[in-house]
């Protein structure tokens, strides 16, 4: 039995396509970058919840500084690390809105440590999406607070040495200890089942905003194939082997 391709490729047979909440601009990310998938999941959740007109995003400094070019909602860009403070200002004055920050590991876990800690401690009614790829992507692959011990980066050319650079920062576990956070989870987007779980987590976080259940914090362990100097497929494998033992997936807190 053979079915003509044109019989299948019909509007009514579509089971997956780009959500209209994505702008369609070609993303500036490197091939295989996890940011693209995470953007897509946020856009899908916002679209499916029907809250595009109530959602305001705060983009960071780093690779995802231009996130506002890709998800078709109102956005502001924040200074390096300050997104949770900016989101606080928005959320406090726009109580009915869904406010989220989108931050990388350098932005959130290094220069913005104070802002994220205190926003979470106040239990700001915001969603924080934290993409951890253990490296500074935009500036060319320098060590991040989450860089693994021994991991080679442009500023740890002989590998991260704990005597010199300290330890990989498990900021998600730290934030889960704060009374202001309601939902804290660590996810990944390397396989379809992982992507489904990550999307459910994002959806849950946005739903929590409606219920004012404290700050929702989602870490996505991601890849940076350019920074890690691997192909995207190798990078996913390396992430599973090296990153997951240090940053185990799953819900850390859910109240």
């Amino acid at each position: 039995m053979s079915v003509e391709l044109k019989e299948i490729i019909k509007e009514e047979n579509i089971v997956y396509r780009k959500t209209p909440a994505l702008t369609g601009n070609v993303m500036h990310y490197c091939p295989g970058c996890s940011h693209g998938v995470v953007h897509k999941l946020i856009a899908e959740v916002v679209e499916e919840m029907g809250v595009r007109d109530k959602t305001i995003g705060v983009s960071p400094v780093g690779c995802s500084v231009l996130a506002y070019n890709y998800i078709d909602i109102d956005w502001t860009e924040a200074a390096h690390g300050r997104a949770p403070a900016v989101a606080t200002g928005i959320s406090r004055l726009h109580p009915g809105k869904f406010v989220f920050t989108y931050q990388g590991d350098g932005d959130l876990a290094s220069i913005g440590t104070a802002e994220v800690m205190h926003a979470c401690n106040r239990g700001e009614n915001i969603v924080i999406i934290f993409v951890n790829n253990a490296i500074y992507g935009m500036t060319g692959g320098q060590m991040a607070p989450t860089t693994l011990v021994g991991q080679v980066t442009s500023t740890t050319p002989r590998g991260r040495d704990v005597k010199l650079n300290g330890f990989p920062m498990k900021i998600t576990e730290l934030l889960a200890r704060l009374d202001g956070t309601g939902f804290v989870t660590r996810q990944a987007v390397h396989t379809p089942p992982a992507i489904r779980k990550a999307k459910n987590a994002i959806r849950k976080a946005f739903e929590n905003t409606k219920k004012d259940k404290g700050t929702s914090f989602i870490e996505i362990v991601g890849t940076c194939s350019s920074g890690w100097k691997m192909t995207p497929v190798e990078a996913n494998r390396w992430m599973v082997e090296k990153m997951f033992p240090e940053y185990p997936l799953g819900d850390i807190k859910d109240i």
Binding site: V3, I8, I9, N13, Y16, R17, K18, M27, V37, H190
Partner: peptide
């Protein structure tokens, strides 16, 4: 038509169709 490809695509450039034949 399982859509796995579409889901993992970071650039959202894949459309998937499925037909009951």
């Amino acid at each position: 038509g399982c859509a796995n490809c579409g889901m993992v695509c970071p650039d959202a450039v894949i459309t998937v169709y499925r037909k009951n034949v």
